[in-house]
Amino acid sequence: MDWHAWHDAYDVPDSYLGRRLALVQERVRHALDEAPPGPLTAVSLCAGQGRDLIGVLARHPRRADIRARLVELDERNVLFARAAAAAAGLDGVDVVCGDAALTDHYTAYAPADLVLLCGVLGNLTDTDIERTLDHCTQLCRKGGTVVWTRTRHHETNVCAWLEKRGFDPVWVSSADIPYGVGEHRFTGEPGVLPPGRRMFTFVGYHVLHGNLFPDAGS
């Protein structure tokens, strides 16, 4: 899978990914609007080109409050995200080229006010999704927000798994669209994110599901 070329659909506003990105950005914007005053931290796993967070921060009034860590394995996507952050003057956005599954990338930022799981969950086994959500109770501060995406036919499990771990639904996309976007708020007490752990293995949607929705990603 060419994960750099995969992002091209984001440039078509009416594409599957273009419409989904608009919803994700809406939820990121809402989470920032509702966040308490003062410094904020954000982390994005498998961040791709960072369009969800960087696209919002570029024009958001809280932009100077944010210290963010974006982790992405594809070097071309990393360069794209770094250039976008620099063009927007987002000095607090750090884009790392590396394995987003490793907890070491996030320990200095956790527990964070905002955790992005966009384009991730659909590429994992159910076991690894649950393991990743377990780690979200360490990645996310009390009162913090997780924004996530998942193809519609698996979305219900994600909501139930999050709620089981103390995340209350703030907003979930309606059933009349083919992709799931959600915003959940953590009500529990965060644990300490341990270093040196692997949260998941990125398998790929096309491997897990036979490429049923080739433009969907996750």
Rank of each mutant, 00 (worst) to 15 (best):
T103M: 06
A64Q: 14
D113G: 09
C46M: 13
A87G: 12
G38F: 01
R152T: 00
R198G: 08
L208E: 13
D14N: 04
V181D: 07
A175Y: 14
T145F: 13
R67S: 15
R59V: 12
A108V: 03
A64R: 12
L53N: 08
T41Q: 14
R197K: 12
G204Q: 03
P13E: 00
A85R: 06
W3Y: 13
L102T: 02
V192P: 15
A42P: 10
A5P: 05
L114C: 09
K164G: 14
E189Y: 03
N211P: 08
Q25M: 07
A112G: 01
G119C: 10
G210H: 03
R152N: 01
G122Y: 01
T125A: 09
H30D: 12
P178T: 00
A58T: 15
A35T: 05
A83M: 07
D99E: 02
A47F: 01
W148L: 09
N211S: 08
S15V: 03
R69V: 09
V192L: 14
A81K: 03
A88T: 11
A47D: 11
G122R: 00
R198P: 11
A22K: 12
T107W: 00
L21G: 06
R76W: 06
T132A: 04
S15H: 03
L23D: 09
A58S: 15
T41V: 14
C136N: 00
H60D: 07
G217S: 04
R67N: 13
C136Y: 02
W3E: 07
G122P: 04
D99G: 06
E183D: 12
N77S: 04
C118V: 13
E72A: 04
I54T: 04
D52I: 02
P178C: 01
S44W: 06
Y109P: 13
C118F: 10
L70M: 11
D176P: 06
L162K: 01
Y106L: 04
T103I: 02
R29P: 08
N77E: 07
K142M: 05
C159R: 11
W161H: 05
V172N: 08
L40G: 14
P13D: 08
D14K: 01
G144E: 04
T107F: 01
W171E: 15
P214G: 03
A68V: 05
L17H: 06
G38N: 04
T156Q: 15
R20I: 11
V147C: 09
W148E: 01
H105N: 11
A216G: 11
R27Q: 09
R62W: 07
H153A: 08
Y205L: 04
L212R: 15
S173A: 10
L17P: 10
D94C: 03
D215Y: 00
